[in-house]
Design a protein around this nucleic acid. Structure first.
Lengths: 122, 122
DNA sequence: GATAGCACTATCCTCTATGATAGTACAGTA
DNA sequence: TACTGTACTATCATAGAGGATAGTGCTATC
């Protein structure tokens, strides 16, 4: 057993190295609503009910919870204007703007996938 | 009430138009494992157990199930070599290669997010 | 003969994401 | 006075994602 396919135990595989940041990203962006919420806010700051109106099917409960998550992770800023009644506004942070490429590539791929399905099913 | 902010009911908001393909994409790529599996296969075709080795934490059951999903959606090709014993190989399809941009942007953002966290917490 | 690898499948179980519904406190409007 | 809008929170329920464990039929290896 002098040379049973020596594994490079010192340097992990390139694959694992690539996988790590991707899994980190997915941990933050997981779920059905986080990216849609961020996308909605790329069109400008919005109030709670305005976001709800843009995203079909989301419930108040989900929107509230996901917004909190996003604020905690530094991806959304919550601003309260001390008027009567208070006005609450949500907007993107510089950090969430760095998601532009992710969003754009996902959008393009969504379109591509749809046309793929059309071609396949005919 | 002659002009109470007429909504453009004919043309939906730009926001909703952008959201649709993104939600389509997320529907296909959802879950913890699909993208990691595709990433693993970008490093070349692999056998079942080889994929399992690259992706920490995945169980056989999940890998099997997710691979089936991916094959169904045209994102992975399953090849059986009729040797003894049979050798099963998984590889990407041309269509899944169109995910390159998504994966690369996600990888970059994962790295960026990590350094964001480091800067924020100090 | 025992064990290990391969590519799975079958059960069972738990937990979390998501959904449905209702309620709150206040203000403005008809 | 009744209703609506705003920005939520609370409670309850459920489907399904995901995990743990074991088994299968075959072969190759110790």
């Amino acid at each position: 057993m002098e040379n049973t396919a020596i594994e490079p135990e010192h340097s992990e595989s390139a694959c694992k190295g690539t996988l790590r940041p991707i899994r980190d990203a997915l941990d933050i962006l997981n779920g059905k609503w986080k990216l849609p919420i961020i996308v909605a806010l790329t069109f400008g700051e919005k109030r709670f009910s305005e976001i709800a109106k843009e995203i079909d099917g989301i419930t108040d409960r989900m929107l509230s919870k996901e917004l909190q998550d996003l604020v905690t992770n530094g991806l959304v800023k919550r601003t309260v204007e001390e008027t009567f009644p208070v006005k609450v506004t949500y907007s993107l942070t510089p950090h969430s703007k760095s998601l532009d490429d992710v969003i754009e590539s996902l959008r393009k791929w969504g379109i591509l996938h749809k046309s793929y399905l059309v071609n396949r099913d005919k």
